[in-house]
Design a protein around this nucleic acid. Structure first.
Lengths: 201, 201
DNA sequence: GTCTATATATAGATAGAC
DNA sequence: GTCTATCTATATATAGAC
């Protein structure tokens, strides 16, 4: 198995990176081996030497994208500040909204959800993200940032869904606006759950 | 132009309905004219007699699906009850969660967002839905259901995003669970915005 | 209106030379 | 490891008979 830790300077690495890009832009069904080879600057022979075919290459590319996405999210959620500030940092990070989510976008593809090896990185990424957000929100609740009725796990699922759904609304509108409206609406709802001023910090 | 009001008993209607189903199941890129003809029980000649080709047929099918989706949502949001009850009715309606949204799912398809005539029904549907939800929430706020800091328009965008994102999480997990967790988390956040008991009904 | 024949391009992969 | 040739199936459509 090709190590995901290598950078894309060798042929196999370039093929993986080209596949990552194309899966993001065109989805799995819309990505052809030919397009991958052209973008990677590699020939047919190279691709089928290093990988068993399109599904095999796609599995490597999706795993790598999932790892990168987790690292990015973890950086936001592990920064300095209160739980509320860290969730806000995650939600307000600059994104190329109209491109959508590299991982979430693949969930629409029937051939991806039908192949356990292709779907697994999606499931693992969102499971991890929800649980990491729940952890942060739980810390905030324990620290007195939220009231006693506040539900960290449920709220974590809502936060992730707003981001993924925001992408859908933005792409449908051809405009990043709806993404930001959905996120801002969520942040206001979260503020309403804030504990009374003067609660334990 | 083929009237969207006719039922699918004639050939053109059957072609449109077959296309609606396939777009939902396989997306635009993943749907071939051949598959449409087979599902509709129509031949090549029929399809190209009634429609100019795949894009033309897809435009008719997407417009029809969008109309149907708006009618369904409007039924929930126009029912009896408080604003909170109507939004809850919309969010808690029974859905085939793992199939995803017929309209939102198409936003992932690059050929859909690139074609203004194909993307327009998506944009119009979500614009309408957000504005209809904002209307309901505004009525609720005016009726004293929510506090003065409550933002109907922002919350409406959040509600729509949670549903669309919930589909993404569920399909990624191969399990409807995450959809319902995201929706439940949202409903709890909304409850936190409730006005004090005793406010004007 | 519907059918069959035909046409070009691409998808996705294998074989074997170098 | 990489290249070129080759292969079968499908995508997407046009032409013209009936």
């Amino acid at each position: 198995m090709y190590s995901v830790l290598m950078s894309g300077t060798d042929t196999a690495g370039k093929l993986i990176e080209a596949t990552q890009e194309l899966l993001w832009e065109r989805g799995y069904v819309g990505t052809s081996p030919r397009a991958i080879q052209q973008r990677a600057g590699a020939g047919q022979g190279s691709m089928y030497h290093h990988f068993g075919g399109k599904p095999d290459l796609a599995r490597a590319a999706v795993r790598k994208s999932a790892e990168e996405m987790r690292a990015t999210a973890d950086a936001d959620l592990s920064c300095e500040g209160s739980a509320r500030q860290r969730v806000r940092a995650y939600l307000s990070r600059e994104r190329s909204v109209l491109r959508g989510c590299r991982i979430g976008g693949l969930a629409q593809d029937p051939d991806v959800v039908a192949d356990p090896a292709l779907r697994a990185p999606l499931q693992e990424t969102f499971d991890w993200l929800r649980s990491r957000l729940a952890e942060v929100l739980e810390e905030g609740k324990n620290g007195g940032e939220f009231g006693s009725a506040f539900d960290p796990a449920g709220t974590a699922a809502t936060v992730v869904a707003v981001v993924q759904g925001g992408y859908v609304l933005a792409r449908s509108a051809g405009d990043p606006g709806p993404f930001h409206e959905a996120v801002d609406g969520l942040l206001r709802l979260l503020d309403a759950h804030a504990a009374e001023p003067g609660s334990p910090a």
